[in-house]
């Protein structure tokens, strides 16, 4: 009986191991797969991320007439596996080492960018 006593007494007389989040925030680990960002200027709308995404939360569409492309990600369906980041030919996708903040509403990440010249677009799939 009472075998735990030394441990709990030690706890009592040493500093608590609690991390005082959110008052003190730890330095994030650089490898942490956090919030997904798309640098829309670098994006070539190649749909690789859309195809590879295991959760199929990315939709890429192109509007040739307007010369714009739309990159839509459902952050609520994203499973933070970073496959899209790995396959992105232009490295326009990146993951911040911080988690995405909670929100009260359901919102899509929708980014509209200019379509690049076709030459570059063709080059991308070849890289594979």
């Amino acid at each position: 009986m009472l075998k735990m006593t030394p441990t709990v007494l030690k706890n009592l007389f040493s500093k608590s191991s609690t991390r005082m989040y959110p008052f003190e925030v730890r330095e994030p680990f650089p490898l942490y797969r956090g919030e997904l960002f798309n640098d829309i200027d670098k994006c070539i709308f190649c749909k690789k991320c859309e195809i590879k995404c295991p959760s199929q939360c990315i939709t890429v569409s192109k509007d040739k007439e307007a010369g714009t492309g739309t990159w839509i990600c459902d952050p609520f369906a994203c499973v933070y596996c970073s496959i899209c980041v790995d396959v992105c030919p232009t490295k326009s996708l990146s993951m911040a080492p911080n988690h995405r903040k909670p929100s009260a509403t359901r919102d899509m990440i929708e980014q509209v960018g200019k379509l690049k010249v076709p030459k570059k677009k063709k080059a991308a799939p070849k890289k594979d």
């Binding site: 709990v8 706890n11 040493s14 608590s16 191991s17 005082m20």
Partner: peptide
């Protein structure tokens, strides 16, 4: 509070 401290928590 004391319980928390015994468990190494802030409490």
């Amino acid at each position: 509070r004391v319980t928390a401290r015994l468990q190494s928590r802030f409490g």
